[in-house]
Computed example of a mutant assay.
Amino acid sequence: MQRLVADGHTAVVEQTSPLTDHAVAAIVQQQDGAPLGTIELAIGKAMSAVLFARSTAELATFAQPGGPFYGIQQTHAGKVVIFGGGVPVFDGAAIVGAVGASAGMIEQDIEVADAGLTAFGHSLA
């Protein structure tokens, strides 16, 4: 996890429970100097990736005005995050968790989250 939080990032790994289909933060790590708000944002990105079984970058594209998910960020008490940096983790067809990253530019957060998938032996579908 150390290499995932380089350059001031916060990284979160969400794990789903097969009994409840609810996700809980399994690992939260914040690099020294990362802004305090990045923790909630990284958790929100991971949770959003779990809830919708797709990356938050993809959600962001679909959530634009006129898009099929326009307004989705207002659901779940406004906790859906549509900034890139959240990616789901699958075991076959089953979603088993997600990685969320925050604190850099969106492209950097996406890169860190993708590195998280690789670190845990997964890749983007």
Rank of each mutant, 00 (worst) to 15 (best):
E14L: 13
G66F: 09
A49H: 01
D91M: 08
H9I: 02
T38N: 11
G78H: 08
S55Q: 07
F52P: 01
V12T: 07
T75I: 06
Q31G: 08
Q64K: 15
V28N: 01
P68D: 12
V112S: 02
A23E: 01
E40W: 05
A34L: 05
G86Y: 00
L51Q: 12
M105I: 09
F90C: 08
V28Y: 04
I106F: 08
D21S: 14
Q31K: 06
S17I: 10
T118D: 11
E40Q: 14
H22I: 13
D109F: 04
F69V: 05
V28E: 05
G100A: 04
S48G: 06
M47I: 09
A101Q: 01
L41C: 10
L51T: 10
P18L: 11
G86M: 02
T118Y: 10
T10P: 02
M1W: 08
M105T: 11
P65Q: 11
L41W: 06
V50Q: 10
S17E: 13
G33R: 05
T56E: 03
A26H: 13
K45A: 05
G71S: 09
Q31I: 00
A101C: 15
A53P: 05
V96E: 10
I106K: 14
L36P: 12
F90L: 06
A98L: 06
A93G: 12
E58I: 06
T118C: 07
V99D: 01
G8T: 04
S102D: 05
A63P: 08
A46M: 01
I82A: 02
I82R: 01
G67A: 08
E107I: 11
D91A: 12
T118H: 14
G97N: 10
T10W: 02
Q31W: 08
P18N: 06
V12F: 02
I72D: 03
A26C: 10
A25R: 06
A42G: 00
A98D: 06
A11D: 00
R3A: 12
A57Y: 04
F69P: 02
D7M: 03
A6M: 11
I106E: 15
S55L: 06
T38W: 00
T16G: 05
D7A: 07
A42W: 01
V12G: 02
V81K: 03
E14I: 08
A26F: 10
L4R: 00
G67N: 07
G78L: 07
G104Q: 04
A77Q: 14
G44F: 05
A53V: 09
F62Q: 15
S17C: 13
L36V: 15
M1S: 13
F120P: 05
I110F: 03
E40G: 12
G84M: 02
A60I: 03
P35L: 10
A26I: 03
E14N: 09
I106P: 11
G8V: 01
L4W: 00
M47G: 09
A103L: 04
G78V: 05
G67K: 08
Q64T: 12
G121Y: 11
G100M: 01
V96T: 14
F83R: 11
S55T: 14
L59T: 08
V80L: 07
T56L: 02
A125L: 13
V12K: 02
I72W: 03
G116I: 00
V50G: 08
I27A: 04
S102F: 06
S17K: 09
R54W: 01
V89K: 09
A63S: 15
T10S: 10
F83L: 15
T16M: 12
V80W: 01
A34R: 03
